[in-house]
């Protein structure tokens, strides 16, 4: 099992979600986050006051998938989240030792 953490543009979230649904992935955790990588923030002035946007809004998706689905999911996210501009985000993969469904204590991939 692998965990996919994808930091994407908020504007791409609906497309990514729909694309994942199309390949049969409908379970995910979504978090509204802020951050920056190479895409630095900028400063807006409104009515004499400066608003510095140094941490840009992003969406973080977290999915834990069986190994067999991981590559497809990553490709799907890459395809649907990409605009080609700085700030499109990143994908992180990590191995997961165990998954347990709280309701019935099922373990392993069947708990996903």
């Amino acid at each position: 099992m692998m965990k996919i953490e994808a930091i994407i543009q908020p504007s791409r979230f609906e497309s990514v979600k729909d694309a994942l649904l199309e390949i049969g992935i409908d379970g995910m955790t979504v978090t509204e986050v802020r951050g920056h990588g190479r895409q630095k923030g900028h400063t807006e002035v409104y009515r004499g006051r400066e608003y510095t946007v140094d941490l840009l809004p992003k969406i973080k998706l977290e999915l834990v998938l069986p190994d067999s689905l991981v590559n497809r999911a990553v490709e799907t996210i890459l395809k649907s989240a990409k605009t080609g501009k700085i700030g499109d985000g990143k994908i992180f993969l990590s191995r997961i030792e165990e998954a347990i469904r709280i309701r019935n204590e099922e373990r392993g991939e069947s708990a996903l």
Binding site: Q9, P10, S11, F13, E14, H42, L56, T83, G87
Partner: peptide, 8 residues
């Protein structure tokens, strides 16, 4: 617009 477009 806020949620589905790139406001920057």
């Amino acid at each position: 617009t806020v949620q589905r477009r790139d406001i920057f």
